[in-house]
């Protein structure tokens, strides 16, 4: 076997770069998050709700996070579990061990994750949301996550904190999603 075969393969980010892309427009920062590990967790019939990583599974529309691990509701009896900076691990196996008897599916590379941060609190995030998604910010405030449409793409819109917005979209459409987000961010920025 040739030597080259044992050289590890190098990963690219969803936008096709060796390093994550970042754009700063005024008070808003938009950043690709290639380190986010994702696995879906679905209850099987008749099993009880697990508490993976000690986190109770949130109800419909909810998001809970602590110590770099977060869980949000995606569908009846289904959640996505996310962990920062663990994309290179077999995160699905870790989640499966934390949620015995559940159906767990690796989702890390199913999504491109983009983080938007406002340096001046919630107001710019709300202005941005109004340009991106048809969600009532009074219902989808901090501590919520939901899937919705954004420029004809299905995305998860996550509100980890008042001044933060995470958008997860199909990895294959990362370029289109970045364009949509950056255009809106640049227009919101003063």
């Amino acid at each position: 076997m040739p030597e080259a075969a044992v050289q590890p393969l190098l990963a690219l980010t969803a936008l096709g770069g060796a390093t994550p892309r970042k754009a700063v427009h005024g008070v808003l920062t938009l950043e690709e998050n290639p380190g986010l590990a994702l696995a879906s967790l679905a209850l099987r019939r008749g099993t009880s709700r697990p508490t993976p990583f000690g986190i109770p599974l949130p109800d419909a529309g909810g998001w809970t996070g602590r110590d770099g691990v977060s869980i949000f509701w995606t569908a009846p009896d289904q959640w996505l579990v996310a962990a920062e900076a663990r994309a290179d691990s077999d995160f699905a196996a870790t989640v499966a061990a934390e949620a015995p008897g559940c159906s767990v599916t690796e989702q890390t590379d199913g999504f491109a994750a983009f983080e938007i941060t406002a340096s001046t609190g919630e107001a710019p995030i709300l202005s941005l949301m109004a340009k991106l998604v048809n969600l009532d910010p009074r219902r989808y405030g901090p501590g919520t996550a939901t899937r919705t449409g954004l420029e004809h793409m299905s995305v998860f819109v996550i509100r980890p904190a008042p001044g933060r917005l995470s958008v997860l979209g199909m990895r294959s459409a990362a370029g289109s999603l970045w364009h949509a987000l950056e255009t809106a961010v640049a227009r919101i920025a003063p």
């Binding site: 879906s40 989702q107 890390t108 590379d109 990895r171």
Partner: peptide, 13 residues
């Protein structure tokens, strides 16, 4: 039936 579905189209090259 005890079935769970999820799309993984984009997750795998």
């Amino acid at each position: 039936l005890d079935v769970q579905l999820i799309s993984t189209t984009d997750a795998w090259a």
